[in-house]
């Protein structure tokens, strides 16, 4: 029984990182209808910000988090202005390929500047160690992504539904031209949405550095699962992406525990395919 409880707990924790990436992808997808292949790379950049902040400034990743989110927010704006906004005028296929090519550029630039070797945090951090509750063991550093995911989900929900900017973004995603007619600047909405998505990825990267290794291609590992979580959660639904991410984490861990670790990702895909077979627009899709 304890094994099962531990498995459930770990599944949810593991799903938190997926949820964070998925929320970013969902935001970009929902607002601009672009499938962003570079979210994984923003995660990677967030990880490197955290690593260098830790190594040269001695900062704990949780302190580096706002720094990372801020830096990636700015990067998101730059990338949007330079590349994405132009791509939006072209066919959908081009948009997807541009984010893919962009991810290549980011990965290999990171390789050039940071080196291809695997890195881990160097200086001690405050969230390390475990708490033994008897029936489950909780690793402190793993709580960070979970709490972060909850925070981000909550904040995004509030932002999109309670603030003017958020509602403007939602309006733009529903109908760009109509939004323009009522005085909303669609380009501004898109910029903010894209930048927020990369900021979320950046913060997620910081959370990840507590226990995962860093190298230029680390984003690719999480990217596909992020996509699947979004597709399962439903087009445009940030909440859906969050919940799907957690569900996928559960599927991953429980399949690995009770079936076979070699095919645990098949388990995740099966959950996804079954879900979309019954609800092709995703659980919360519109």
């Amino acid at each position: 029984m304890t094994v099962f409880l531990q498995g459930v707990y770990e599944g949810i924790i593991n799903g938190s990182i997926l949820a964070l990436i998925a929320m970013g992808i969902a935001l970009v997808w929902g607002v601009m209808n672009i499938l962003s292949f570079s979210q994984g790379e923003f995660l990677m950049l967030g990880m490197f910000v955290s690593y260098y902040a830790n190594r040269y400034l001695g900062l704990d990743p949780i302190v580096a988090m706002p720094l990372s989110a801020g830096a990636l927010f700015l990067l998101g704006i730059v990338i949007y202005k330079l590349i994405i906004s132009r791509a939006l005028r072209g066919p959908i296929l081009s948009q997807r390929l541009i984010t893919f090519a962009l991810s290549m550029v980011l990965v290999y630039s990171a390789q050039m500047f940071f080196g291809a070797e695997y890195k881990q945090l160097v200086n001690p951090v405050i969230f390390s160690g475990t708490i033994d509750l008897g029936f489950i063991t909780i690793a402190k550093q793993k709580l960070v992504p979970f709490i972060l995911a909850l925070l981000v989900a909550g904040l995004l929900f509030l932002f999109l539904n309670r603030t003017r900017m958020g509602k403007a973004i939602q309006a733009t995603s529903m109908d760009r031209y109509a939004a323009g007619l009522v005085g909303i600047n669609p380009d501004r909405s898109y910029t903010i949405a894209f930048a927020m998505a990369s900021a979320v990825a950046g913060a997620a990267g910081c959370a990840l550095t507590y226990y995962y290794y860093m190298f230029p291609n680390v984003g690719a590992t999480f990217q596909l699962w992020g996509f699947i979580a979004v597709a399962m959660g439903g087009f445009g639904s940030v909440t859906g992406a969050f919940l799907s991410g957690l569900v996928m984490g559960l599927a991953d861990t429980l399949t690995g525990l009770y079936v076979n670790t070699a095919i645990k990702y098949i388990g995740v895909c099966v959950v996804f395919l079954v879900t979309v077979s019954f609800r092709p627009k995703g659980i919360f899709g519109k």
Binding site: I83, R86, A87, G90, P91, S94, L97, I98, A101, L102, S103, M104, V105, V107, Y108, S109, Q111, M112, G115, A116, P216
Partner: peptide, 23 residues
Amino acid sequence: HYNGLDMVIYGVLVILIVLFIPD
């Protein structure tokens, strides 16, 4: 031998082509 520069150039070229010659 510049540790990945070739792929960066490749990616940039792709972006340029897809952006400016979308068809």
